[in-house]
Design a protein around this nucleic acid. Structure first.
Length: 528
RNA sequence: UGCGGCGUAGAGCAGUUUGGUAGCUCGUUGGGCUCAUAACCCAAAGGUCGUCGGUUCAAAUCCGAUCGCCGCCA
């Protein structure tokens, strides 16, 4: 999706998920981040922004080399297979990305070389000694005191750390201590939420040390440009995948081309496990190369299942593929984005999952449309009534207030708030029907009042569907279809989104529009 | 050891900055309505706000101590 570069900087919005490490198949955590990014991308498209939604994979490093080895296949083949799995899941989840950035591509290699050269010329890379315990799973050196008696790091208690004594090239992170401190004290809002920001700041306060950006005895990586015995450390290469992603498909892979339109990136969405790399290493690397840093970093929490940490070893991992097959993408997207405050840890519980989906989407919203639409067919021949709703109407005021609330929520990456506001309108609609009882008014022959009531509720449902569409595109499309529109929120491209830009306002549903026969837009879920 | 967070009805959370009858969603129970996907609307039950002590006319909210859980410390 490329468009002419006519927009000013503020018209574009580039956001990223992490480039996922392809050690294994995608898990629910990766899905969580990607659903959030997709919802946000869809929101900004609705607002008329040019959006570049970036995801991808991080494919180098010892861990992948060994995983491929154990599977008896070439690393590249292993990566290709995993990429297929990621794509398959994103499709299932109705995720529309604009760029899928892979770190093993030749164009990425060229970007890395050019970037490396800038940092090298700046004098920020030097050869040093490093020895200590190395956890291959983390791809990091560990302090002795952080290891268990069996020499395992706490994150990977089943994998022994290895003693390494090697020469590595280091990046002078320490030189950037002051500039990073200045950056975050001038712009504290760059790291969200606050609790994570404080962790980053207190880590920084202890003093930043240089980190190694090369590895020896590792074939699966880009060769170190100035020393063929080394390969580039996987993180140095992976972060640059964000830059490579900005290239248009037919661009020469140069830094200038990559940076021409979308830089600086507006938002990185990441999990709390990689905040240090994104909040400290990455901006320092960018400063070294003379580039602007990313505008905002949003760090979300981890998911548990029934209150327990998920893990392969514990065997309680939630399979994102299965879950989506069973309940469909909208349900999965809605549950995680509505029921978990983004930034905090959250829990998956299947009973709660079913309860929430049924209560919110099937009953409050879906059934509201159903009952109103049925009346519209009984009382108004299935056409949108031609009436004007007075300013003073309570439901109308509520519908009009929604835009402000929801926009604010999405801008703050507070999906649960956006959902809450939308649901509030649906609940108000139900109550409004109950209080005004159009079925009674109809029997009394008060046709005009009936039409007013129905219009107000139908328009509220439309607004709710519209504002929920970043999260539940399929459902929103189904609602719009029943209301007589020919719009797909699922495959919303920039051009189509623009025609919908004003749909956040009250009064868009036009008189006389022929609506479909009511049919449940969201089937009730049952516990499997 | 250090820094930070959390502990409020069966579950998930808000309220703690600026003390003053304990609130929201889901679930449960009862009633209402009949347009609806047994749905929606109303109401009720359910909490000595981790524990102990202090300040105060009054504390979930302030102070001290204590227990438990979690995060960060390359």
């Amino acid at each position: 999706m490329t468009t002419p570069a006519l927009n000013t900087v503020s018209d574009t919005f580039a956001l990223t998920t992490p480039l996922y490490y392809v050690n294994g198949r995608p898990h629910i955590g990766s899905a969580y981040t990607t659903m959030a990014a997709d919802a946000l991308a869809r929101f900004y498209r609705l607002r008329g922004r040019s959006v570049l939604s970036i995801t991808g994979t991080d494919e180098h490093g010892q861990k992948i080399e060994r995983t491929a080895q154990s599977r008896n296949i070439a690393p590249q083949l292993h990566c290709d297979e995993m990429v297929g799995e990621f794509n398959r899941l994103w499709e299932k989840l109705n995720i529309q990305y604009d760029r899928f950035s892979r770190t093993t591509t030749p164009r990425h290699h060229l970007i890395v070389k050019e970037f490396f050269q800038r940092v090298w010329d700046k004098g920020d890379i030097y050869l040093g000694e490093q020895q200590g315990w190395y956890c291959v799973a983390c791809e990091e050196f560990k302090e002795e005191r952080d290891l268990t008696e069996e020499k395992c790091c706490t994150t990977h208690p089943n994998q022994k750390a290895e003693w390494r004594d090697e020469s590595n090239y280091f990046f002078r992170l320490s030189s950037y201590q002051e500039r990073l401190e200045e950056l975050y004290s001038a712009h504290p809002e760059m790291i969200q939420p606050e609790s994570r920001r404080n962790e980053v700041l207190s880590f920084m306060k202890q003093g930043l040390q240089d980190f190694s950006i090369s590895r020896v005895n590792l074939a699966w990586g880009f060769p170190f440009p100035t020393d063929p015995d080394h390969t580039i450390y996987v993180w140095f290469d992976a972060l640059l995948g964000y830059v490579t992603a900005l290239l248009d498909p037919d661009d020469e892979p140069t830094l200038d081309n990559a940076l021409k339109r979308w830089w600086p990136i507006d938002l990185h969405i990441i999990g709390k496990d990689i905040s240090r790399f994104h909040a400290l290493y990455w901006p320092a690397m960018l400063m070294s190369a003379g580039l602007e840093v990313t505008q905002k970093l949003f760090i979300h929490g981890f998911l548990t299942k029934d209150g327990l940490k998920m893990g392969k070893s514990t065997g309680n991992a939630l399979d994102a593929f299965e879950l989506t097959d069973r309940y469909q993408s909208d349900a999965v997207r809605y549950y995680f984005l509505k029921e978990v405050e983004f930034g905090r840890d959250g829990d998956f519980n299947e009973t709660r999952f079913v309860n929430v989906l049924n209560a919110d989407l099937a009953n409050d919203l879906g059934n509201l449309l159903n009952r109103t639409l049925r009346m519209a067919h009984k009382y108004c021949e299935g056409k949108v009534p031609a009436v004007a709703i007075p300013d003073s109407d309570a439901l109308r005021s509520r519908g009009e207030a929604l835009e402000g609330q929801v926009v604010n929520a999405y801008k703050n990456v507070a999906f649960h708030e956006a959902c809450g506001a939308v649901l509030g309108l649906a609940q108000a609609g139900n109550k409004y029907l109950d209080e005004r009882a159009p079925w009674t008014k109809y029997k009394e022959g008060k046709q005009e009042i009936v039409e007013e009531i129905l219009y107000a509720v139908l328009e509220s449902v439309r607004l709710a569907a519209y504002w929920l569409s970043p999260i539940t595109p399929t459902l929103s499309g189904a609602i719009y279809k029943q209301l007589g529109y020919d719009v797909s929120f699922s495959n919303l491209k920039e051009e189509a989104a623009i025609t919908l830009n004003n749909h956040g306002q009250w009064g868009i549903l036009s008189a006389g529009q022929i609506m479909e026969k009511p049919q449940p837009v969201f089937q009730k879920l049952e516990l499997a």
